[in-house]
């Protein structure tokens, strides 16, 4: 009974969140005395995929058919289900993302597999298979037993502390049977900001709210983010006002992030915003209002004007390099 990890690619490279899923998979395999195979779909290279070995994988199945270069939820699901059958995998591990959600769901239905998402820790095998998952948008946890023979586990960022090894994985070509019906959805255009740190993948996030007073002031937020190598994010009012794009909106109805560091600038900290960031390891709040509720959820706080504090922090980071 082996473990199969679905790895997402970004520009041919395995995404960081998927490397974490591979490591998670290798820990599951260790506990079950089996091995980890990785499935990668789309354009890549042998060298880029062999990296999976550093995270505990022994083998990578690479489905490189040109029709798969654009992510198709149905086609990817069919390929993953075929790989599960080819490897007789008991566990399918992947990282929670919009593609991951869609693909894991369809694979679960294909295989009648138990599916649990937002998993925050390694499984417990003491009695069957149980996992700890985040619920109520990070406000609580649940312990869930997976009762089917096949099990799909979608992990949240930082579910496991990754330790890099020096292994290398063998890369094998995987040629699944592709079905025309799986390409019924046509992508007619892609609008993607380039050169930015991906928000769901980021270890460090600098986020700002209405305290910035207007979109023209975002330079100081971007400067701080650039100095840190962080992604930028924003609160819901800021995205509603079109100061920033919707894909930067963090909160209950936006993206949920769990970075190592979340710096909130000029955000009061409404409960709906906290729901999107409460699984961050360390939270810093900078706000001139000492009564801002966000301070109660913070690890570090500065009561001050963002227009004064942010440029000084940027300078301090540059000076410390």
């Amino acid at each position: 009974m082996s473990v199969l990890v679905f790895a997402e690619l970004d520009n041919g490279l395995i995404k960081k969140s998927s490397l974490e899923a591979i490591y998670y998979g290798s820990e599951v395999a260790k506990a079950k005395g089996s091995s980890v195979t990785v499935l990668a779909i789309g354009e890549s290279s042998n060298e880029a995929l062999a990296i999976a070995g550093k995270y505990g994988a022994t083998k990578v199945l690479w489905a490189s058919d040109a029709r798969l270069n654009i992510a198709s939820i149905q086609a990817y699901s069919s390929v993953l289900a075929e790989a599960v059958n080819a490897t007789s995998a008991e566990f399918v591990i992947l990282s929670k993302s919009s593609l991951g959600d869609a693909v894991s769901a369809r694979v679960s239905a294909k295989l009648k597999a138990s599916i649990v998402s937002n998993v925050v820790d390694l499984p417990d095998f003491s009695s069957g298979v149980t996992v700890k998952r985040s619920i109520y948008t990070g406000k609580a946890f649940a312990t869930v037993a997976l009762t089917s023979d096949k099990k799909v586990i979608a992990i949240k960022k930082n579910a496991v502390n990754v330790v890099e090894g020096d292994g290398s994985a063998s890369v094998e070509n995987f040629a699944p049977a592709l079905n025309d019906a799986d390409f019924a959805v046509k992508v007619t255009g892609t609008h993607k900001a380039s050169g930015q740190v991906s928000l769901p993948e980021a270890d460090l996030v600098v986020s700002a709210g209405r305290g910035l007073k207007g979109p023209e002031n975002w330079g100081i937020v971007e400067d701080l983010a650039n100095a840190l190598g962080a992604a930028t994010a924003c609160s819901k009012p800021v995205s509603d006002l079109d100061w920033r794009p919707h894909h930067e909106h963090v909160g209950q109805t936006g993206i949920k992030v769990s970075p190592n560091l979340y710096i909130a600038c000029g955000i009061s900290g409404a409960i709906q915003h906290l729901a999107g960031v409460n699984s961050s390891k360390v939270i810093v709040v900078i706000n001139k209002d000492p009564e801002a509720p966000f301070f109660k959820a913070a690890d570090y706080g500065i009561i001050g004007d963002v227009f004064d504090v942010l440029p000084r922090l940027t300078k301090a980071i540059q000076a410390s390099k």
């Binding site: 679960s108 009648k112 597999a113 138990s114 599916i115 649990v116 149980t130 700890k132 619920i135 990070g138 406000k139 609580a140 946890f141 649940a142 312990t143 869930v144 037993a145 997976l146 009762t147 089917s148 409460n278 709040v285 301070f295 109660k296 959820a297 913070a298 690890d299 570090y300 706080g301 500065i302 009561i303 001050g304 004007d305 004064d308 504090v309």
Partner: peptide, 21 residues
Amino acid sequence: LTITEKYALPAPKGAVKMIPA
């Protein structure tokens, strides 16, 4: 295909460390 066995609340957050502006 799953059974939720138990719930838990997150560990309470420690006190915030304030840094003068």
